[in-house]
């Protein structure tokens, strides 16, 4: 009986603490890891824009993916793992206020294998941008955005 109570308490504690732990890890991201925004959160933001400047949403994945489906209003700048893509990114944001909210996303492959998010975030940070977030997509754009019914443009 005692053991069962302990298990129940442990499960309840995990359930209560896990969202908090995730939120904490997102807001205290190390320098090479961007703060994250969840797909549901961004979809909500697109439906009901928050007060203040509208975020600049940038796709830093591959062109064929963008042409098939992309987040409405997002700009295609190409894979940030390649110099050409990074240069387009730098050129696009050069004149913007460093406080501009920017959301970068890719969705080319599973998050841990994405070659584009890190270099894009590093380039934006190096330019002094302080309000950059990356859209978290565990698997890919199709599975984590399109299949969830979030808005898509072609």
């Amino acid at each position: 009986m005692k053991t069962r109570s302990r298990i129940i308490i442990a499960v309840m504690a995990a359930a209560v603490l896990s969202p908090w732990a995730r939120a904490w890890s997102m807001n205290h991201a190390p320098a090479d890891k961007p703060p994250l925004i969840q797909p549901a959160e961004l979809a909500k933001l697109l439906r009901k824009p928050a007060k203040g400047p509208k975020p600049l949403v940038i796709q830093i994945g591959f062109r064929v993916l963008y042409e098939q489906a992309h987040i409405p209003g997002s700009r295609y700048l190409g894979p940030a793992s390649e110099e050409a893509g990074l240069n387009r990114l730098r050129a696009r944001v050069k004149t913007l206020s460093r406080k501009t909210p920017i959301i970068i996303y890719c969705g080319c492959c599973p998050w841990n294998h994405c070659p584009n998010i890190k270099p894009a975030y590093a380039a934006l940070r190096a330019m002094g941008f302080t309000n950059v977030k990356a859209l978290w997509m565990a698997r890919n754009f199709g599975a984590d955005w399109v299949e969830n019914g979030y808005p898509v443009a072609k």
Partner: peptide, 14 residues
């Protein structure tokens, strides 16, 4: 290209 990818139901990740 996108047209070719769409003919296979869309390639929205690799």
């Amino acid at each position: 290209n996108a047209r070719l990818a769409e003919s296979f139901g869309g390639i929205l990740g690799l």
